[in-house]
């Protein structure tokens, strides 16, 4: 591969598209699309699982390619998987609030699934910021969620090693957001600045210094696509998220209110599985571990993996262990 082939391979891989499992759009609202994945194995018979991804990146990371797909692992276990694609907010979405995201968009998806399956409650998997949304939704609508799984989800935003939180706490967020949206590219640069040497230098050197085969190059390019495919953030929701969660830490302190209703984690009595990346530089493990002491559930399980934030979705080890852990946990509930 070293030599004339590598550039050809990189160029060819530039056009690789992420996302591999067949799915169909089953509901839309504004820019949001709710997808249902086609089954690839006999049904486990459990309630459908709704994956709630973050707003700050694109959800296809959950189904990057055949051998790097958390969703594929869940489908193989017979789980009926739904995924929310929040879309790309534009200027018309600048006044969309967190309440809009939860009460309208997320609640709309849940209603759609419950109607389709004639069920009272579904299973929910919240990822990163989507995990925060899932916790809030479950606290506000306890009857609609049967089992809750959170993955690399921050709960306590004021833990000592949370660098992003330390940075954000001193920023004038109202002034930063103004009345507009927040550039996804600018946000991405902030994330890269958390580990600038590794994320802007070493990983490229690593790529060219090895002798990657076509498959590895394509994998690299798909991840690269995902990293830099950063939707702009709806201004109002972004402002609320930064102030209420990062600066005020209201969720952990029991002071969060959405649309005039208190979000009380102690009210969460449903079975919960918390998946934590022990080398997560975006969501330090302590920020996730805190969930256990804050919820009222007596059926709480935490699984800790020696993985980073992205590794939790796409590492080889994650493929082997994470979907299996989720399927196993759900099967017993």
């Amino acid at each position: 591969m070293i030599g004339e082939g590598i550039y050809a391979a990189l160029t060819a891989a530039s056009h690789c598209t992420a996302g591999c499992s067949p799915k169909e759009a089953v509901w839309q609202s504004g820019k949001l699309t709710l997808y249902r994945y086609r089954p690839i194995a006999p049904s486990s018979g459990g309630a459908p699982l709704l994956i709630v991804y973050a707003l700050v990146n694109r959800p296809y990371m959950m189904d990057l390619q055949e051998d790097r797909s958390l969703i594929r692992g869940l489908l193989a276990a017979g789980i009926d998987v739904y995924l929310i694609d929040w879309g790309y907010p534009d200027g018309a979405d600048r006044f969309t609030t967190l309440s809009d995201y939860l009460d309208d968009y997320l609640a709309g998806c849940v209603d759609q699934i419950l109607q389709t399956h004639r069920l009272d409650a579904l299973n929910m998997l919240g990822v990163c910021q989507g995990g925060v949304f899932s916790l809030c939704f479950s606290a506000l609508y306890p009857q609609r969620v049967r089992n809750l799984i959170t993955m690399v989800t921050p709960v306590d935003f004021h833990t000592p090693h949370d660098l992003l939180s330390k940075w954000v706490r001193k920023i004038d967020v109202v002034s930063l957001v103004g009345e507009g949206n927040v550039s996804g590219d600018a946000l991405n640069q902030l994330f890269l600045s958390l580990m600038p040497f590794r994320l802007t230098q070493q990983k490229y050197i690593d790529l060219v210094a090895q002798t990657p085969n076509r498959s590895q190059i394509e994998n690299f390019m798909r991840v690269e696509q995902w990293i830099f495919d950063s939707p702009d953030q709806a201004g109002a929701a972004f402002r609320e998220f930064l102030i209420w969660f990062y600066q005020d830490n209201r969720l952990a302190q029991g002071r969060l209110e959405l649309t005039g209703r208190k979000v009380d984690l102690r009210e969460l009595r449903l079975p919960m599985l918390n998946l934590i990346g022990m080398r997560d530089h975006l969501v330090p493990p302590e920020a996730s571990v805190a969930l256990q002491r804050l919820v009222g559930s007596d059926d709480y399980t935490a699984l800790q993996f020696d993985l980073g934030h992205i590794g939790m979705y796409i590492s080889a080890r994650a493929q082997r262990e994470v979907p299996a852990a989720i399927a196993q946990w759900l099967a017993t509930r």
Binding site: R146, P271, G277, M278, R279, Q292, D298, D299, Y300, T301, A302, L303, Q304, F305, D306, L307, G308, H309, I310, G311, M312, S315, A316, R317, E321, A325, T332, R333
Partner: peptide, 20 residues
């Protein structure tokens, strides 16, 4: 129809050596 929720709180650790 669901299993009783008597399961005690538990924290499992599933550590390994694979890289992220």
């Amino acid at each position: 129809a669901r299993k009783p929720r008597a399961a005690a709180r538990k924290t499992k650790r599933a550590r390994g050596k694979s890289k992220s």
